[in-house]
Design a binder for these strands. Structure first.
Length: 579
RNA sequence: GCGCCCGUAGCUCAAUUGGAUAGAGCGCCAGACUACGGAUCUGGAGGUUAGGAGUUCGACUCUUCUCGGGCGCGCCA
């Protein structure tokens, strides 16, 4: 069964179709129709701009749009009354027993309430984190990690088939350096004096890994300067570090369906296929780039390179595919990797990148436009940095000296729920402050707690009622239940019923923070209503003398729990009946 | 120098992608507990949405310019 928002949209769309047939409207962009279902202004249960939009399209001066609209909307079976305000907004009140029908649907649908099939089973690949395996995962990847995970869940909730993927850069010079660093630690275990260069990795985790090699192979590699040894140390380091990274991410319940390794991309020669495509489209050529405008480019000298003509597409300059030593650039391999994803028949690719990669977006979009002939086959979401605040001070980090804060350290300090919640509760493109002290407070300043507490209180009422022998029974009993409810409660119910739309929007716009705002709003309404019961006994949830009235409240309390559980599951935080 | 992201109350953030009087929390001021959990609630003060110009019935949102902050700018990943 459709809800009132769907039905109203249907009505408007139908109204436009008929209007066009009868030459009342000409072209009409239906997307300009909006329905405001949160009813902030409290001028009706829901409202719409339809009249404002439609009046501009009205070709027939003799046609009285206002009267016709009012008459037809008032005739809709779910509409109690309807009016058009002075400034042109349509305000509608919904019949209470129709709201009740929808509550029934919600309670029957339970955890599938809000799910949709708008994705139509299309395959989406969400690539996120993809941190280089040169050390433990740090706070720099924290936001992208949670965002990627939650967006994946959101898409799954909207009927997409989602693959969570991690691209492991285990080729290239950083990994060479990692192998060398590990080898030095290995030699150190045999009493050799070592010295790490500036660019080498100082972290103590490499000592642990070196010990593992020593345990397995003894001194086998001590005096070997062969390629075999170099590859062995690189692979060994990457294997263990990926395992560390996986373990760290699992602290936040983040799991990946697939890890793809750069080395495999290189050895599979996918890049040749890529070059073939670029050649066919005449986007591959040898040439010389202009001197970059950056500050410290003194050592620059013109050099002929293999280039991708990305400036023909989205980029403002062409991009190098090959280094002067003959190796492919990072970009070339990454482009090949994206071709690999395309060949795996995903309908859409989503990448989640940190702010430091923003400049990289146009070239990658150019590649995927070339491969897929679609502007939006690849979608890149970026997240700005998170500043950590502790005791009112900004925690400064630098990669030198291993002076970075790891994900695990933050996890140890605050735990999973506040971490996950705060990472997605603001728009990702805005830089944010994460206050380690504040997120642990157990008061209303802390939205995680505030929402979980609302859930616990709702549970508490349900359990208390149950202990008094009051439970929900057959739904037929509640035909008149809405008569027992106050305006505040109807507002909560309207809000709960709008959940499928909030979810859809969060999914469409890749904005999980809409969900946290949503449950914070409901929590506020709920706590506020709760408190009114203190002053006015008739507003309390449980009334022994009036079982039906109590059950009427249980109807929406159960609904609220279901909606909260759905949201909590999507954003990946726990919920408890007692705090 | 160029490109991208951002700028909303003293602070941290919203604003249903162009809708009605820009909303919450913290902090500040003034109040409410013989309770279905006071870990909460009620009221008040606080804004030229960084600034100017434009687009239209209507702009925090779109265009443009200025200012301020962040990120990036060949053979690093």
């Amino acid at each position: 069964m459709s809800n009132h928002i769907d039905l109203l949209f249907d009505f408007f769309h139908q109204y436009v179709n008929i209007g066009i047939q009868e030459n009342i409207f000409n072209e009409f962009n239906k997307k300009s129709i909006s329905i405001d279902f949160s009813s902030k202004s409290r001028q009706g249960d829901i409202s719409s701009n339809f009249y404002l939009v439609a009046i501009k399209k009205n070709l027939d001066k003799k046609f009285d749009l206002k009267t016709d609209l009012l008459k037809k909307i008032n005739n809709l079976f779910f509409v109690e009354n309807c009016e058009i305000s002075k400034n042109g907004f349509i305000n509608i009140n919904i019949k209470k027993n129709f709201l009740l029908d929808q509550i029934k649907n919600l309670l029957e649908a339970k955890h599938s309430f809000g799910k949709s099939n708008s994705g139509g089973g299309k395959k989406v690949n969400v690539e996120f984190v993809s941190a280089n395996p040169t050390g433990p995962i740090t706070v720099a990847h924290m936001r992208g990690a949670v965002l990627g995970d939650v967006i994946s869940s959101l898409l799954a909730e909207s009927g997409f088939e989602v693959t969570r993927e991690y691209y492991v850069n285990n080729a290239g010079s950083q990994i060479d350096t990692l192998g060398i660093s590990l080898y030095k630690r290995y030699l150190e275990l045999f009493g050799e004096a070592i010295e790490l260069n500036n660019d080498e990795y100082p972290g103590s985790y490499l000592i642990d890994i070196a010990n593992k090699i020593k345990k397995i192979d003894g001194d086998k590699w001590r005096n070997k300067d062969t390629n075999e040894r170099k590859e062995y140390f690189k692979d060994f380091a990457v294997t263990y570090l990926i395992e560390f990274i996986q373990n760290d991410l699992q602290l936040l319940n983040i799991d990946f369906d697939k890890f793809t390794f750069e080395k495999d991309i290189v050895s599979n020669q996918i890049i040749n296929e890529l070059f073939k495509i670029l050649n066919e489209k005449k986007l591959l050529y040898k040439g010389t780039l202009e001197k970059p405008k950056g500050e410290d480019s003194d050592d620059w000298e013109p050099r002929e390179q293999l280039l991708f003509k990305s400036s023909d597409i989205f980029d403002h300059q062409d991009r190098a595919l090959q280094k002067s030593n003959g190796e492919w650039t990072y970009f070339a391999n990454d482009a090949a990797y994206h071709l690999d994803k395309y060949k795996r028949k995903f309908d859409k690719l989503i990448n989640i990148w940190g702010a430091d990669h923003i400049g990289y977006i146009p070239r990658m979009r150019s590649i995927l436009k070339t491969i897929s002939s679609s502007d939006d086959y690849l979608e890149i979401l970026t997240c700005q940095i998170v500043r950590l605040i502790k005791n009112n001070e900004i925690l400064k980090m630098s990669k030198r000296e291993g002076n970075f804060i790891t994900l695990r350290e933050v996890y140890d300090e605050v735990g999973k729920d506040p971490l996950r919640y705060f990472m997605i509760s603001t728009k990702s493109e805005t830089s944010m402050d994460f206050d380690l002290n504040k997120v642990l407070e157990k008061n209303k300043d802390n939205p995680v707690f505030y929402c979980q507490y609302a859930y616990a209180r709702a549970s508490s009422v349900i359990n208390k009622a149950s202990s008094l022998g009051i439970n929900l029974e057959s739904f037929d009993k509640y035909n008149q239940a809405t008569n027992n409810l106050t305006k505040d409660e109807i507002e909560i119910i309207l809000k709960l019923l709008s959940y499928p739309y909030i979810l859809q929007q969060a999914s469409n716009y890749r904005e999980p923070h809409r969900l946290t705002n949503f449950i914070e709003d409901i929590s506020t309404l709920f706590h506020s209503f709760w408190n009114k019961g203190k002053e006015n006994e008739s507003l309390r949830f449980i009334d022994n003398q009036d079982i039906i009235k109590t059950q009427s409240k249980l109807l929406w309390l159960h609904s609220m729990r279901i909606v909260f559980e759905n949201v909590f599951k999507i954003i990946g935080i726990d919920f408890h009946e007692t705090m």
